[in-house]
């Protein structure tokens, strides 16, 4: 049986939120702690199953396990070839901010900037 079970408290939520790059308000973090704790308690029913010799499902397309007859072996890897894709301009077109033909972000690209640019700019 897996032994390591957590009670999700506020400190845990803050830690996970940081890992997930989510800034949460106090009210949000408080509500999420109790909601997620209730869901995890439901998940704990999986502990009642002995899975010692059961392999994890890692590829639904591989073999026929669980999939009934008729499923071919996994589709495998395609050849690594360069094919036409989205153009440079198209890729940049939806960016909130771009600069010098790339995606612009704070600090790294705009080390000397004084204010975030309000309007999107495109450089072909």
């Amino acid at each position: 049986m897996p032994a390591q079970r957590a009670r999700l408290d506020r400190a845990q939520i803050d830690h996970i939120a940081k890992l997930a790059a989510l800034s949460l308000s106090d009210a949000e973090a408080h509500a999420l702690a109790s909601e997620l704790d209730a869901i995890l308690r439901h998940v704990e029913q999986l502990d009642s199953l002995d899975t010692t010799d059961v392999p994890p499902t890692t590829d639904l397309l591989a073999g026929s396990a669980g999939a009934g007859p008729g499923l071919p072996a996994g589709s495998g890897w395609r050849e690594d070839r360069v094919l036409p894709g989205v153009s440079h301009d198209d890729a940049l077109a939806a960016a909130p901010r771009s600069s010098l033909g790339g995606f612009a972000v704070p600090t790294f690209v705009d080390a000397n900037a004084t204010a975030p640019a309000a309007a999107p700019k495109r450089h072909a």
Binding site: P2, Q4, R5, L49, T51, P56, T57
Partner: peptide, 21 residues
């Protein structure tokens, strides 16, 4: 927590697939 939750769930997923088999 990976083993206790994610890996465990992927193993139970195998049991659910075997039910259908």
């Amino acid at each position: 927590y990976y083993d206790a939750y994610y890996l465990k769930a992927q193993k139970v997923r195998t049991l659910i697939r075997r039910d259908f088999d």
